[in-house]
Amino acid sequence: MTAAPSSPARGGTRDELKRAARRLFAERGIAAVGMREVVETAGQRNAAAVHYYFGTKDDLLRELLIDGADLIDARRRALFDAAEAAGEPDLRAVVEANVMPCIDLGGDTGEGETYFRFIVNVQNERRALFSATVPEHSPGYARYLAHVHRLLAPLPAATVNQRLLFAGLALQTLVAAREAALDRSDTGDHHFWSRPEALTGIVDAVEAILTSPAG
């Protein structure tokens, strides 16, 4: 009788499929990538492997979204815990607690290589799926929103919400650009994006959007 594959083998195949899928979605978009291509890119021979491990394409997208969201938000909550332990954090500390968890994600299936380009494409092509999946895995982000509203309380709530939207879009774009540059590098280093000043600049940019003079 043929022995069933061990758990490590199943886990390895699953992880290879996730890594391959995220990269394809990040580089080419969501609609342009078929599940057979994911299987081939992952080096698997069973054409039904994605269906076996994940179910539908939407199920795979949800799992990839959750993997990165959980990774980011665990770091974000830890930073907010530390900042709030000393009292009510100022805006700089709040922005840093939101931005820095997005940098150098790592991750067991290479989230740090492609996650932000992937979520940009999901939001562009599958906004409803993103909105139905990520918020419940982002309680740390909800703390960020609450702190910003507290700190910008003199402004109308609609103005604060607009700035939060613009700041979020700017952060995603900047981190995705950094991610792409590092991903293209053979050494994982980049003459601009690897410098501490670049990370400080991202925080500066997000903070500037939130605190710009009212028009």
Rank of each mutant, 00 (worst) to 15 (best):
T173P: 00
A31M: 07
S138E: 12
L71A: 09
A9V: 15
P154G: 08
P8T: 10
K18M: 15
P156E: 03
D81E: 15
V203F: 09
A176H: 09
S138Y: 01
G107K: 00
L152M: 11
A158C: 04
V38F: 05
D59R: 03
G43W: 12
R150W: 06
A47C: 08
Q44P: 06
A132G: 07
H149P: 02
V160M: 01
E179G: 04
D67Y: 00
G140K: 02
F54H: 09
F80R: 00
L155K: 06
E27I: 13
G215M: 05
A170G: 02
A128T: 10
L17K: 04
L60D: 03
P135D: 05
T173F: 10
A146T: 13
V95W: 01
D15I: 08
T41L: 13
A177W: 02
L17D: 08
V160R: 08
T173L: 13
D204N: 11
I119C: 07
P5R: 13
T187V: 15
E40N: 09
S194I: 06
R195M: 08
A128D: 14
A3F: 15
Q162G: 10
L174T: 04
G43A: 13
E40T: 15
K57M: 01
R76Q: 12
G188D: 09
M100G: 01
A42K: 08
S131G: 08
P135R: 08
A47N: 08
T187G: 10
M1T: 14
T133W: 00
H191M: 09
R178M: 14
K18V: 01
V148M: 11
A146N: 10
A198R: 07
G34H: 12
Y115G: 06
